[in-house]
Simulated assay, not measured.
Amino acid sequence: MGSASKQSKQGSGKGRSGSRDDQAADRRARIAELRAVEERRDRRNKFISIGVATVLIGGIVGVGGWIALDAKKKQDDKKAAAAAADKARQDAANVPIEGVQTFDNLSRNHVTTKVTYAQTPPVGGDHNPVWLTCMGNVYDKPVQNENAVHSLEHGAVWVTYNAKATPDDIKTLSEKVKVTPYSLMSPYPDEKGTITLNAWGTQLVVDSATDPRVEQFFTKYVQGPQTQEPGASCSSGAMQ
């Protein structure tokens, strides 16, 4: 009996030990599974992060590329417009305008005294050292001939008119001058024609601001081939 009892106790001990080993193995298995799940989750999150970053970077690059392309297109359009304007001026320079008179051998001395001019309004000759500001300026009173002639030397077109010009004529011409650098406008009571367009050595008389030759004259002679001092300023001069 004693020996049987002892064996029974020993067998019972082995059963408990086996149970503990099984439990430990189960815990290790669960821990390994949890670690595997965690690693899979980490890998998935990393792939998602990489994917999102790739999309964001691609989007940024795409937007940046679009902005660069848009800027280039605008620059190209600007160059094309400038080239078209230059071509229009060149083409216009080769087309004669009916009624235009030209005058040669005009002196260009700077003087501070009054000058008697051969044309009315004058289109060249000796003139004041200070030009009349001509960046689209519309003067409502007569200006000094000597200052205006200096502006013509710089490539400006000077629009003059007398009392026969209608309010609509004056309005139309004023609007044209105001948006045209290297142009100016003023009344000229003593001129014979209703409206006179003046450039250096060049003059055209018209009866109405709607005459198509007005636009042709501006296109051809604003900073045109008659300009004596290309690139000279038309700003910061006399104002009357």
Rank of each mutant, 00 (worst) to 15 (best):
S5H: 14
S8I: 13
K9W: 13
G11L: 07
G13I: 08
G13L: 09
G18S: 04
S19G: 12
R20P: 01
R20N: 09
A24V: 10
R28I: 13
R30E: 15
A32K: 12
R40Y: 06
R43Q: 15
V52F: 09
A53F: 12
T54E: 08
T54N: 11
I57V: 15
G58H: 11
G59Y: 04
V63H: 03
V63A: 11
L69W: 13
L69A: 13
A71Y: 10
K74H: 09
D77K: 14
K79A: 15
K79P: 08
D86N: 10
D91P: 06
A93L: 09
P96A: 09
I97W: 06
V100I: 12
F103D: 06
D104G: 15
N105C: 03
S107Q: 09
N109W: 02
T113M: 10
T120P: 07
P122L: 02
V123E: 05
N128Y: 10
V130C: 10
T133I: 03
M135Q: 14
V138W: 01
K141Y: 04
E146L: 00
N147G: 01
A148R: 00
H150K: 02
G155I: 03
V157L: 05
N162G: 07
A165Y: 08
A165P: 06
A165V: 10
T166M: 09
I170R: 03
K171R: 12
T172V: 13
T172P: 06
S174V: 02
K176C: 04
K176E: 12
K178F: 02
T180R: 05
P181G: 08
P181Q: 05
S183Q: 06
M185C: 06
D190A: 14
T194I: 08
T196L: 02
N198A: 04
A199K: 00
A199Q: 02
T202F: 02
L204S: 00
V206S: 04
V206K: 04
D207T: 09
S208M: 06
A209H: 03
V214D: 07
F217Q: 02
T219S: 03
K220A: 07
Q226R: 00
Q226A: 04
T227C: 11
Q228G: 11
A232N: 07
M239P: 00
Q240H: 11
